[in-house]
Amino acid sequence: MIDLAANFLWMFLVVIGGVLISWSVHFVPVGGAPAAMAQATGIGTGTVQLAAGAGLTGLISAGYMMQVVDNLPLILASGTVGAMIMISVTMIVGTWVYVYGVGCVPSSAKVKVDPITHDRQDLYVSQGTEGHGLPTVSFVSGVIGGALGGFGGSLVYYALLKVGMGVAEVDANMIGLVAIFAVGIFFVNAVIPSYNIGGTIEGFHDPKWKKWPKAVISSFVATIFCAIVAVIAILQLGGL
């Protein structure tokens, strides 16, 4: 009854989704605890929380769209935009806090000029800090990260739900099972890159960003195993 070959396409999509999630984390400006004290550029919390916040919002918006239509591009677009909105709101509110609350200028310590606006950065970095707030380039990078994460997350969800649809009627059990597998795979692929970047990154202009192939390869291998295990468990729904 367990027919992995017939579900090869869906497993492949799960792996692609996992790899995209892993790549997306490198774009999100994660500042960690130093950023929470306005001593490093980025949002003041950890990678996992940010990626999970944005990616799970993407999952929810993709799941909502899936109730209405069974069209892959629309579902992916819904998940992508949901995650982009979530990360943008997080970043803009964070910027308000840094600018009006802490009273510091958004600036990056990793580059001399912002690659997008060409504004000088180094003049505005407070002494003893590694930048603070979210300069334009980090914001844009974060939105790209949200888009990739939401796209990857909804791809995982869609592919796993398709596996389930092949063996049984869609019901609450299947949706719950697929959603929790998508969340599990999401967390695994959000933590692997966070170890790769060592906790903080400013965005695609950060030198650490170039390390992404390592995390993507790791996520690729790890997600293959998670995908096989998830597909087998979902296929068991047919026998209940």
Partner: peptide, 12 residues
């Protein structure tokens, strides 16, 4: 990175 990451990967 923060300790919470390892708890999350454990449960993932």
């Amino acid at each position: 990175t923060g300790v919470p990451s390892i708890g999350m990967i454990a449960l993932g």
